[in-house]
Design a protein around this nucleic acid. Structure first.
Ligand SMILES: [Mn+2]
Ligand SMILES: [Mn+2]
Ligand SMILES: [Zn+2]
Ligand SMILES: [Zn+2]
Lengths: 136, 136
DNA sequence: TTCTTGACTTGGACTCCGTCCATCGTAGGA
DNA sequence: TCCTACGATGGACGGAGTCCAAGTCAAGAA
C-alpha cells in the first residue's frame, strides 16, 4: 500500500494525515468498505477526521482510478482498492460477504451486436449472488 | 397488463384504486421507473395517492415476483415490470437510458467452480455500460 | 527556518431515498 | 347492508451523500 501512497504523491496528490489514513485503511484483498466503515476505521487512528473529508478522499481516489466504486445492494456504495485487477463480485445473500471473482469468459464479448442498440458498450459489471458456506 | 391485474386478483391481492394505478403505470417494455417516478405518474390519475402507498405496492409486487428491482447506479432503485423474461441491462453513461438486453451465453456458466469459494451461486446480474447513439 | 498561499479540512445544514407508525378509510365477505 | 381486517395516509424519522463558509495546513519560495 505504500505503493499507493507513492503513486499518489508522484501524481501530485497533496498528502495530509487524513488522506494518508484513508489510503491505509483501504489496504488488503477482498476489501469493500462503505464510506462510513472507512470513516470509523480511519477515526481509530485520527479521531477527529470528518465524514466530509472521507467522502472527498474516496471521490478523488475513484477519479484517479486507484479505487473502484461498487454498489451491489442499492444501499451504501462500497470502495474497492483492487482497481488495477479487473474483476467481478460474488455476494452472499445471507451475510453480505463480498468476494472478488474472475469469470472464464469476458462478459462484454457475450453481448451480440444486435443486442447493443447502437450503443458504444465499454464495460460490463457482473454481480453473482448466492449463499456462502456458513450461510448455506 | 390486465394480465397482471388478473393474476394479482387470483393470488388474493386485495384490489384498491391505488394498487390498480401503480400496476397500470408499470406497463410497457424497457420500463425502469423509480418509486418517485411511479408516484408522479400515478398521481396524474389519482392525485392524493401517497408515497408510502407506492412504496408498499412496489414492495409487494417485488415480493410476488411480478416486478423486479434494479439498481444500476448508487441512486434510487428502479422497478421493472419485465420480471417474467430474465434479462440484463445496458445503461447509457451519458443520459441514463436503460435497455433490456440478452447476452448470448448464460453469465452464471462463466464462473468456474474454483472461483465460487464454496458458495451456492444462484443468480448473475450483468450491467453493461456505454454511450447511446444520441450521447456518443 | 520562516513565510505565504492555495489547497484541504471541518461541522453542520441540507437533499434525496426509503422506512415506520398511529390513525383513518374501505374492499369484500357474511 | 354491515363488519372488520387489511390498506392508505402523511408526517416523523433515519441513513447516505452533498454542499458550504470558515478555519487550518502542506509544501514551495525565500
Ligand atoms: Mn472487489
Ligand atoms: Mn429491465
Ligand atoms: Zn453468508
Ligand atoms: Zn445517452
Amino acid at each position: 500500500m505504500s505503493d499507493l501512497l507513492e503513486r499518489l504523491r508522484e501524481r501530485g496528490w497533496r498528502m495530509t494525515s487524513q488522506r494518508r489514513v484513508v489510503a491505509e485503511v483501504l489496504d488488503g484483498d477482498h476489501v469493500h468498505l462503505t464510506a462510513d466503515e472507512v470513516h470509523a476505521l480511519a477515526a481509530r487512528r485520527l479521531p477527529e477526521i470528518s465524514r466530509a473529508t472521507v467522502y472527498n478522499a474516496l471521490g478523488e481516489l475513484v477519479a484517479l482510478g486507484e479505487v473502484a466504486e461498487v454498489s451491489t445492494d442499492g444501499r451504501a456504495r462500497r470502495y474497492d482498492p483492487n482497481a488495477h485487477h479487473p474483476h467481478h463480485h460474488l455476494v452472499c445473500s445471507g451475510c453480505g460477504t463480498i468476494r472478488d471473482v474472475h469469470p472464464a469468459a469476458e462478459p462484454l464479448d457475450d453481448l451480440p451486436a444486435e443486442e447493443r442498440f447502437g450503443f458504444t458498450v465499454s464495460t460490463a459489471e457482473v454481480t453473482y449472488r448466492g449463499l456462502c458456506p456458513s450461510c448455506a
